[in-house]
Design a protein around this nucleic acid. Structure first.
Length: 270
DNA sequence: ATTGACTCCTGATGGC
DNA sequence: TGCCATCAGGAGTCAA
């Protein structure tokens, strides 16, 4: 269930082991992932990794000849271990480095991806219509306000849409709407600029806080089962149907919005 | 143009 | 204890 913070922490965790290192070999054990072109991926072999970057929930392993574009899907995990360590269940891709270490992509549910972006080709289709990064200044209340005018769809669906802003998944959408006192079912076009300002701030804050907490687990990437996990984050509404709201003690209710489980406080959120 | 249903997959969970 | 059935969920695809 990696959301943006988990992907960012993964990036920070693996980058020191990869940057400046040469890829020796890429072994794809399981090509039945969401998207993968195993032959293209091989183009990275024998090239130096210049950097590891992130855009939305995609991780880029950049070389002079192109980039491996990886997505963790629902259950994807990365870890860096000694090359001679045996594979574990659901280890689908192994990227071996000349340093004697390897980056292992493990993904039980196989919603993850590994694509190749050549610098001479147009951007991959999946990268073309991405909205602003939530933690940059490009993402502000004006973006949400302008793009939402006239929209009848729920504000929760709206902020989870990648064309509006990237990286706000189900958990943090629920949490940031709670912190902003906005009913997730409210039509996106009926939310005021003032409330979008609050929502924008809360989205930034909740994501930044999760990244910060994840930073304390960075060392795990060098261990046998690298696991950024969900850290120990305290969730106020997500997964708490029937519990009392910590602010007003009213019950937390759950409903389905856009095929996604949604949690909100009946009293705090209007 | 928008919106909603459906799809991929496995592990966790609950009922019996 | 085991055996279903159900559900979760990112994000693209397809149909309405």
């Amino acid at each position: 269930m990696p959301e943006l913070p988990e992907v960012e922490v993964t990036k920070q965790g693996i980058a020191p082991f990869l940057e400046g290192k040469i890829i020796d070999k890429i072994v794809v054990h399981q090509p039945q992932l969401r998207w993968i072109v195993p032959d293209d991926v091989q183009l990275a072999c024998q090239h130096k990794i210049n950097s590891v970057t992130r855009r939305a929930k995609y991780l880029f392993i950049n070389t002079d000849v192109g980039a491996l574009v990886m997505h963790l899907g629902m259950s994807g995990k990365m870890r860096v271990v000694d090359s001679n360590l045996p594979r574990k269940k659901h280890d689908h891709i192994e990227i071996e480095l000349q340093t004697g270490k390897k980056l292992v992509f493990n993904d039980a549910r196989r919603f993850g991806s590994c694509l190749w972006q050549s610098p001479t080709q147009p951007p991959l289709k999946i990268l073309r219509s991405l909205g602003p990064e939530p933690l940059t200044d490009e993402f502000d209340e004006n973006v949400l306000f302008r793009r939402s005018r006239g929209k009848l769809s729920p504000v929760k669906t709206f902020i989870m849409s990648n064309e509006v802003v990237v990286g706000v998944g189900n958990i943090y959408a629920n949490e940031s709407l709670f912190l902003s006192g906005i009913d997730p079912r409210r039509a996106a076009g009926k939310v005021s600029l003032k409330r979008y300002k609050l929502l924008t701030e809360n989205i930034k804050q909740v994501l930044a806080k999760a990244i910060e907490q994840g930073g304390t687990t960075l060392k795990d990437f060098a261990q046998a089962d690298g696991n950024p996990g969900y850290f120990a984050q305290h969730l106020l509404v997500y997964g708490r149907a029937g519990d009392e709201c910590e602010v007003c003690q009213s019950p937390i209710r759950s409903v389905v919005i856009g095929q996604r489980n949604t949690f909100y406080c009946v009293k705090c959120q209007k």
